[in-house]
């Protein structure tokens, strides 16, 4: 019965992610439909790739007439940040069986990473179990795929103003995770501020994928050094 309970807890923890994903997935489905990537293919892309920013990029590159090698290469670099996130999450969840963790990490995104590593309530209550992680990731995944389906199927109903970028909902979720985590461990505010400064600088000269990777690495490195000296 423990498994069912943990799975339900995981679904609950995934709810904010699902709430943030639905409007973006609706926007993606709509944009894909309008760009000639019709329902089965749009849903297939969401189900197979499950990485929002790169899917938007792929659709706009398709429209611009890019070839598959360009699109796949750009996707690789944009999503390379998941390597660092996966290493961090794997370290947090190292008590879980390896093969199952690898399988579940197919669903590792910026958002599932954020909740899995920074949800302080989860750490205080008990160590995250496999069922908890599965519930969290499957909730996020279901919202993404279902949102794409409805966005694509009901494109004519959805206003263009829904926007294609990341919505305020996910930024609010990130803030809602980061602020309490920093409050529990005050010196980490240095890491966050240094990383934001690097992120701002790097966004001026690099594309988004590399700017986030660069700022994360720099922020964590400088932060570790400063925190060690204190």
């Amino acid at each position: 019965m423990r498994i069912r309970q943990d799975f339900a807890l995981g679904c609950k923890a995934g709810l904010p992610i699902a709430m943030g994903y639905v409007p973006i997935a609706l926007a993606f489905g709509t944009l894909a439909e309008q760009s000639g990537l019709h329902l089965p293919l749009a849903v297939l892309m969401s189900a197979a790739v499950f990485a929002g920013a790169s899917q938007f990029m792929a659709v706009s590159m398709l429209l611009a007439g890019a070839g598959w090698i360009q699109i796949v290469t750009a996707t690789f670099f944009l999503n390379l940040r998941h390597l660092i996130m996966s290493m961090t999450t794997a370290e947090t969840l190292k008590h879980l069986p390896r093969h199952w963790t690898s399988l579940l990490f197919l669903g590792l995104t910026d958002e599932t990473f954020a909740v899995l590593t920074l949800n302080s309530r989860q750490h205080n209550a008990h160590r995250a179990s496999l069922a908890y992680v599965a519930g969290l990731i499957l909730t996020a995944y279901a919202a993404w795929v279902a949102g794409t389906f409805f966005g694509s199927g009901f494109a004519w109903l959805i206003p263009a103003s829904l926007g294609s970028g990341m919505s305020i909902a996910l930024y609010a979720m990130f803030i809602g995770l980061l602020v309490p985590a920093v409050r529990d461990n005050r010196p980490t505010i240095v890491i966050a501020l240094v990383s934001m400064a690097f992120s701002w600088l790097l966004h001026q000269v690099l594309d988004q994928g590399w700017a986030v990777v660069g700022a994360t690495v720099c922020g964590a490195t400088v932060g570790t050094m400063i925190m060690k000296r204190k």
């Binding site: 660092i84 954020a114 990130f174 985590a181 934001m196 994360t216 922020g219 964590a220």
Partner: peptide, 12 residues
């Protein structure tokens, strides 16, 4: 330290 740095970079 990565979660703090990554979220900060994603937000701003």
């Amino acid at each position: 330290c990565i979660p703090y740095a990554a979220l900060a970079a994603l937000i701003f």
